[in-house]
Design a protein around this nucleic acid. Sequence first.
DNA 1: CTCGGGATGCGT
DNA 2: CGCATCCCGAGG
Length: 168
Amino acid sequence: MVAQELLGKHVVHVVRGIERVGRIVEVEAYLGPHDRAAHSCKGLTPRTRVMFGPPGHAYVYLIYGMHHCLNVVTEPEGHGSAVLIRALEPVSNISGKTCGPGLLCKALGVDRTLNGADLLGEQLYIADVNAEDFRINRRPRIGVDYAGAWARRLLRFYIRGNAHVSSP
DNA sequence: CTCGGGATGCGT
DNA sequence: CGCATCCCGAGG
């Protein structure tokens, strides 16, 4: 699954020439319209347009009126799947906490103006790094209790023992 | 545990 | 149009 492959990679956001970098330590997979916890289960709407778009783009949305969440579209166009970045370990030029999806967006300076951004571009991207050895834990996703059987699926992945995971 | 906060999608 | 709901975080 693509979600685990993001663990250990770096998220880079360039702000006024400064690279803000965090190492991905926690993610959740959202599998498509059949996944009742996924935004795409509402179908193709203005909000979910990017999620149904081509892979390698950022899906950024506002939640609870005040926090942003950063996702990576992972599957081919039309599929409607994405991976939510839930926690980072600070690497460079990070100020503020990064142990949660809203917090890490704040620390990186990511907001909805980056919705749809091409992650192969220059401003916001995922950087592969030398694979440090780590083990992966799998758990149910956070905050999706409404999603019936899908709430119990083990689609949350994090680096075992990492101090920056949101709720170990 | 509570509660803020605003967009969204859906029913009317 | 109204309104319940939401992939959260801070504070008690």
